[in-house]
Amino acid sequence: MHALEEYGLMHVKLYEDIARNGHIATTYAYPVKVEGRYVMDPSPTPKFDNPKMHMSEALQLFGAGREKRIYAVPPYTEVVSLDFEDHPFEIQKFDKPCALCGAESVYLDEVVLDDKGGRMFVCSDTDHCEDRQAHGHAGPMLARPKPESQEAAE
């Protein structure tokens, strides 16, 4: 597939998404084209983080377990997410910052709080979130250091 540059199938997948859902519903394992030549699936990474791979100064390593291979994207490499002209690549947008640390422009997970529709959005990267909290950042739903009140908040 790589040698022959036959990547039509990747667009078929995106086409199916739009046909079924009206928009590209793939949220992770979103295919990217590297250096205008190789198509890659950055699998568990949410597509939210795809743009960060473009011209990244870090060396990026991807393990492809089933192929028993490791793929590397060198620093400062062009990485472009596949899309259609009339359905351009978009990342998720969140209305509010992280409920615990107040971080913006990070990927948030939805946490269901009760069965009455209560929910909160918190950083997917919990380590980063805790780090920020330790440095004094706080979001609107961060429980102050009383452990009982955290229970009560639910």
Binding site: G8, Y15, E16, A19, R20
Partner: peptide, 24 residues
């Protein structure tokens, strides 16, 4: 296992057509 539209559109996408509306 993919829709009729995608079956027909696959070749178009393989040769570089990138406009969903046109392909459809």
């Amino acid at each position: 296992t993919v829709s009729a539209g995608a079956n027909v559109g696959e070749r178009l996408m393989a040769v570089g057509d990138r406009h969903y509306g046109n392909i459809r």
